[in-house]
């Protein structure tokens, strides 16, 4: 009998609509008022394009971008920064919070590892700077040239990892990606009310 079918389907839609109301619509309304955290600036063109590379290469599948609540985790004690708040993410779409820490959290990697040359070499060959690393190398974001041009960022590669001849030069995507990584700095302290979202 069709009435039963309609009741089933309407019931199914009603329950899903309720859940979407609670977990999508209401939060969307509440979160429109979130202000950027202190010191947070919109991404520059290069940082934004580097973020695109970060997304494209799937960095998120091994690196989180969220420092978790100190009452249940030791993220802060590990030196990864203060707990993250919604204001840290206002310029992020899509988000890259991540679900894995095969590699370390990157929420504040720009503050923790601010050396550009280190970042470039690490992307070219992670094991050249971190021997135990299992991160993929990204040689295709770099070029090997006979001689570096005037505007080229040269990567100083240790002999064990260097090409047989020529110099390793950062490609435009590697430059953008490092710009993005160095922009990841959410270390500025929050105003007291923002720092304790849990109390609200």
């Amino acid at each position: 009998m069709n009435l039963r079918v309609w009741l089933l389907l309407l019931g199914a839609v009603a329950i899903m609509s309720f859940a979407a109301m609670v977990l999508v619509v209401v939060p969307a309304a509440l979160l429109t008022e979130v202000k950027p955290s202190p010191g947070l600036e919109p991404y520059t063109a290069s940082e934004a394009s580097g973020r695109g590379v970060y997304i494209r290469e799937g960095c998120m599948y091994c690196h989180s971008q969220q420092v978790r609540d100190t009452t249940i985790t030791t993220d802060e004690a590990r030196g990864w920064g203060r707990p993250s708040v919604p204001g840290d993410y206002v310029y992020d779409a899509p988000h890259q919070l991540g679900t894995m820490r095969t590699g370390p959290d990157l929420m504040n990697v720009g503050a923790r590892l601010p050396d550009r040359r280190w970042q470039l070499l690490h992307l070219y060959q992670p094991r050249a700077v971190v021997p135990w690393s299992i991160m993929p190398s990204f040689p295709y974001l770099f070029e090997v040239k006979a001689q570096a041009g005037p505007d080229d960022e040269v990567v100083t590669v240790p002999p064990a990892w260097a090409p047989e001849s020529g110099v390793v030069v950062a490609g435009p995507e590697a430059v953008a990606l490092v710009d993005y990584l160095l922009s990841l700095d959410h270390t500025q302290p929050l105003a007291p009310t923002e720092a304790t979202p849990r109390a609200r």
Partner: peptide, 21 residues
């Protein structure tokens, strides 16, 4: 009935920040 609703909600490109998460 459920999956099309979910798939469309999930794929809308209107969310930013923690709402996106």
């Amino acid at each position: 009935v459920w999956f099309p609703i979910l798939f469309v909600i999930g794929n809308l490109r209107v969310y930013t920040g923690v709402e996106s998460a």
